[in-house]
Design a protein around this nucleic acid. Structure first.
Lengths: 173, 173, 173, 173
DNA sequence: GATGAATGAGTTTTCATTCAT
DNA sequence: TATGAATGAAAACTCATTCAT
């Protein structure tokens, strides 16, 4: 991957996350990336291809983020790590996540399977802890996760720390 | 409001909800509404004006939906009604809600104040029920609400009934 | 001529003079006149018809302005009145004249015959005063008239009085 | 400046001069220039930008035309050259001048400063020739110049040669 | 690999005009 | 007489994409 190629990807990520995929023109991407418009098409075939390239990176990133949760033996830790995940998004990952959420709504691009491993892990964890309906408990967490993520990424939750502590206590983990 | 004006609003609501605001052309709206394209601009000034008109209707609809929750005396009922709300969205209101969520992400159009009265009512309810941190409990519900709504509207939750019962039991309401 | 009809004519005169014929939309005229857009077409058939109606008034006005010059017996007075004419345009006639000049250029609408009687009168006047080439002298004045009018109407001549005196002296009239 | 760019400028000059700026559509310009309509906007940003580009060329052209008048040492020659200027407009410059006059009226685009150097030179010339009120004499010529130019460009003066000789004799130059 | 000129189809918007009421 | 809803054609402008260099 050449430097210009990376420039394009970064510019596109930033702009797609800020303005949305449809509303971002390729010429804007080119300008922001400091390259000619034609180059985008040479490297990524078309606008759609550019998006796919970004999404590809995303899938990889998400899998990485799940590794600690999927590999821990301790069920309580699995739950705690899951709940803490949205609170630990760093500034640099912010754009990436925002894009994921935006695209989910804008393009109905959705890929629920990529969340499946996490939900499975949570089900197992609740099972090990002896909950009556572990599947529903896991689904509850997944649903909740969507809400917190939105609150943090989009609505700028006011006091993240207090809310996180509240969660941990609720689950006694 | 003439009949054609309503046709335009309905067509726009449907299409904006399905394809997104930016991706929907005014010519498409006109075709779907069965009117000339010019009429859209005569009635709503521009595409943005058309959107605002829809949003206006939305604000009104949301206030209506909140009335029962805000007027009940029984704190348990307030919480129950809130949790049940996303499950009771009828087919006909589906589009409207989908649009609300889409726009929230696509245009970063956001108006958190419209949810404020609900959050306040929940806080009061938890207070009356003697919860230790009623504000956080209310925020928890609000965040969760976002998640369930998304799950229902976007991801097509598999077994709504079971999940709803699970919730009611969790809150013993 | 009803009141609304006059309103339309006045609004059109003002707007055509300010923005030009092509650049003025019929809807703007209607708004400024305080009438519905349809009424313009009922009364004047189309935009072109509205223009013609204004022009018609103009022809009449111009003939009126020429009367004193064409009827005087004194050749010197004829010349003097001609030279003074552009300096005596009152505020209220300003718009009308501006429109005449604008249209001359914008629509190549031109009707040199309407100036013919004046040029003829000047030729006669110079003849009576014993000039060698009265036709050319008259043409000279006509050409000059165009220049002064433009200077006054468009370029806002700085010191009209001084310039006028200078002219009178030049022709010893 | 590519060939197509020049085609656009030439087409625009011709059409703006013939039909006026507002009345000339960009699609017409494109057709006449033998290019796609989009290219106009790529090169000149918008219709206004296209106009500005033409005007820019105009300012340069005007300065060139004034050089001989501004550099001659002989006051009589300065005056003579000025008076002759409108008579010596060649076929090829006709369009350019027509546009200048049209725009002056259509868009109230006006830039009296560009004529200032000429007026100054005339004042000096009349001073050197011992005229009593050189400023007014210069202003007189300038005003007259406007008239002759209009007569030639717009009204197609009938016998240019005779009129020119008449002028020269009047000023004994 | 990289540029930037060029395109054609499409977008939002304007406008003169018609017509039912 | 007067309105204002409605239209169809055209206006200015944008955009993804291609291509010669």
């Amino acid at each position: 991957m050449t430097e210009k190629q990376e420039n394009i990807l970064n510019a596109a990520l930033t702009l797609f996350a800020k303005e949305g995929y449809t509303a971002t023109s390729t010429s804007k991407v080119a300008r922001q990336a400091g390259v000619s418009e034609g180059l985008i098409f040479r490297h990524f075939k078309n606008k759609e291809g550019l998006l796919q390239a970004i999404l590809q990176q995303g899938e990889t990133r998400i899998k990485e983020l799940f590794i600690p949760i999927l590999t821990t033996e301790d069920p309580k830790e699995a739950i705690r790590l899951t709940l803490e995940m949205p609170f630990s998004v760093t500034e640099s990952e912010f754009e990436f996540w925002k894009l994921q959420f935006k695209l989910k709504w804008e393009l109905e691009y959705n890929n629920p399977e990529k969340m499946q491993p996490l939900q499975q892990a949570l089900t197992t964890a609740f099972q090990q802890l002896g909950y009556e309906t572990p599947e529903l408990e896991a689904e509850f967490i997944m649903v909740f996760l969507e809400g917190v993520s939105t609150a943090i990424i989009k609505d700028n939750m006011s006091d993240k720390r207090k809310f996180k502590e509240f969660l941990v206590q609720k689950y006694k983990i």
